[in-house]
Computed example of a mutant assay.
Amino acid sequence: MSSADVTEICSDLVQIRSENPPGYTDEVIAYIREFCDDIGLKTRTVTRGRRHNLLSAEPKGKLLLCGHVDVVPARDEGWIHPPYAGLIEGGFVHGRGSTDMKGGCAALLVALRNTIDTEGDPGVDVAFVADEEGKGEFGMEQLVGEGILKPCDAIIAEPTPPASPIIGEKGVLRTRVTFSGESGHASLHPVIGNSAIVQACRYLHFCQRLHEREWPIESEVADAIRVTGKALESLTGLSASDADRVLSRIMYNPGFIEGGERMNVVAQHCDLSLDMRIPWGCRVDEVIPLMKAAAPDAAITVLESSEPSFSRPGNLTKLLCEGIGSVLQTQAEPGVSQAGSDARYLRILGAEVVMYGPGDLNLLHSVNERVPVSMLENCQQVYEYVLNRVSEI
């Protein structure tokens, strides 16, 4: 294991199943702990049942190398190759988690091994955690919240655009909006009756109006949005205007709508579950009153929330950009993400947290997920560039 290249390590990790749910990470953490033992890195596990996290045994608090090891589930249907085979073919490692984010974890591990072999221990910490793809009940959120893991400058190996390390992410607001109606005979509706389902559907018009609203954004964040907008255009085919909307507006998704008693009865009850992504310049406590005002008779339950986060570019961002430029021979500029990650829990206390890792962003959580071998190798070299210059952070 200790002599395997980054492609082989990624393949091994993909083959160790760690779907969330149920979120069992004991086997994949055991593999990573054995790797760390082989290279002389002392670690400890923090566990709850079969949900395992791996942390440095003697943290130095200088730089944290971080990744999550749980993955979203995959069914066999539609996959060209079995999702957990970890097949290496055609210049890719195929399988669930190869992009999100076992490929990044593999690149961190091999970079750390190579640095120790050539330069000695760089004095950095590691955290390979559970439950990023779930509710966060026993992963980074709890580790930081309970003081088990102290926030410090960190690289999180989430997949990013190749020349754009990520220094910020939008906030998250997940709610359940419960509507109450008045039952009646279906033959009289909509002339008579007050359907809770119709109320929920009308509420989506408010969500669209909220999406259209613009928010004041600081110039430094606006610059990062511009960089990411260009990357999204290139990588996903979004138009410039659509990319800007994704990054600068409130995005909303009605994930579930559940209600009604019978087809021939006007619905008395309906639950609408909403996932909203909150842009910079806006706060969760601004959005909730707007939601309540749009449906004063509905009950709104907040299921999860986090504010937008942003790390002002410092020495770590500068060093990562230099490393990307050295390896890829292109200018690197920091950007932001429309999605959430474990970075928010580390940023909350002021740490400079930068996400940078390998992966095809079009294949996140998708059928036929795969990671290019070239990206694995390039990211490994970028990490080595940083690890050889930790004293500059």
Results as ranks from 00 to 15, higher is better:
A30E: 13
M355G: 01
D121M: 07
L188N: 12
T47L: 01
T301M: 14
A339G: 11
G255Y: 14
H185K: 07
L54I: 05
Q380P: 08
W79K: 00
G229Q: 02
E322S: 03
R44K: 13
L346T: 08
G104R: 05
E132L: 02
G255A: 12
P308Y: 06
M1D: 09
Y24V: 04
D242W: 12
G104Y: 08
M101A: 04
C201L: 13
L41S: 07
V172K: 06
D153M: 01
A127N: 14
S366P: 03
G136K: 07
D125Q: 08
P372H: 05
S239M: 10
G61I: 10
Q15D: 02
F35V: 11
V354N: 03
G168T: 02
I300N: 02
N194D: 14
P190Q: 02
N264H: 15
G260P: 03
P216M: 02
P372M: 02
G357F: 13
M251D: 13
E77N: 11
A293T: 14
C321H: 05
L272E: 12
S273Q: 14
C207A: 08
Q381V: 01
V28P: 04
R347V: 03
I116N: 05
R312N: 05
S180W: 07
L320G: 03
A107H: 12
N315H: 15
I148S: 04
E89Y: 08
P162C: 04
S311L: 06
K292I: 09
G260W: 03
A332E: 13
P162N: 06
P165C: 06
L64G: 10
G97E: 09
P358L: 06
H81N: 09
D285H: 12
R33N: 13
S326M: 08
S18M: 01
V371T: 08
T115D: 11
F92V: 01
P22L: 05
R249L: 02
R202P: 02
